[in-house]
Amino acid sequence: MRAYHDLGGLPAGPVERAEHDYALWEKRVDAMLVLLGDKGLMRTDELRRAIEGLGSAAYERMSYYERWLAAIVEIMIERGVVTVDELGRKMAEIEERRDEAL
């Protein structure tokens, strides 16, 4: 029984050598993880565990920093740094502001 992130030795196609410059939001996600780690609020293994818990469909579909973000949010909720309710309200507020701007 092999977990879906545990890829060593599985059959796969050619290595596509595409690269992209990281977008600002991706850099912010990266920076948030580093800073949360520095402050003792999150461990790399917690990030990995949360990514490993996303489910194989989400793991396949999401981009790298989408996975990180989903995992950081999960751990921040678990640790009580932010609540589900706060996130829900803040996201609604952001979407509303954006809709007004359009």
């Binding site: 939001w25 912010r28 996600v29 948030m32 981009s63 920093y65 989408e66 973000l69 989903a70 950081i72 949010v73 921040m76 932010v82 996130l87 803040k90 996201m91 952001i94 979407e95 954006r98």
Partner: peptide, 8 residues
Amino acid sequence: AQITEMAL
């Protein structure tokens, strides 16, 4: 994802 990042 971008809205979630902003909110967090």
